[in-house]
Amino acid sequence: MIWQLDIILLIIVVICALAAISVKDLLSSAILFGAYSFLLCLVWAEMGAVDVAFTEATVGAGISTAFFIGAIYHTSRRTKD
């Protein structure tokens, strides 16, 4: 537990989350969501919850990004709102 590393990782996680919900391009949003999942995985691993970090890395960063990209190809790439 290094609290400086915790603070830095949490700041990047929040930046990634805000970017993922505010960007207009849906493909960029999916990729930013993958980056958010991977950084959250680093936070879990740094806090000592290795099993949770493993699940986050496989499901959050690996599988769900592929699902999102598969879904985006069936809709328009840019958001309307």
Partner: peptide, 11 residues
């Protein structure tokens, strides 16, 4: 060790 059926199945 960390891991298990769910994570291995996902990989």
């Amino acid at each position: 060790s960390p891991g298990g059926g769910f994570q291995g199945g996902c990989i």
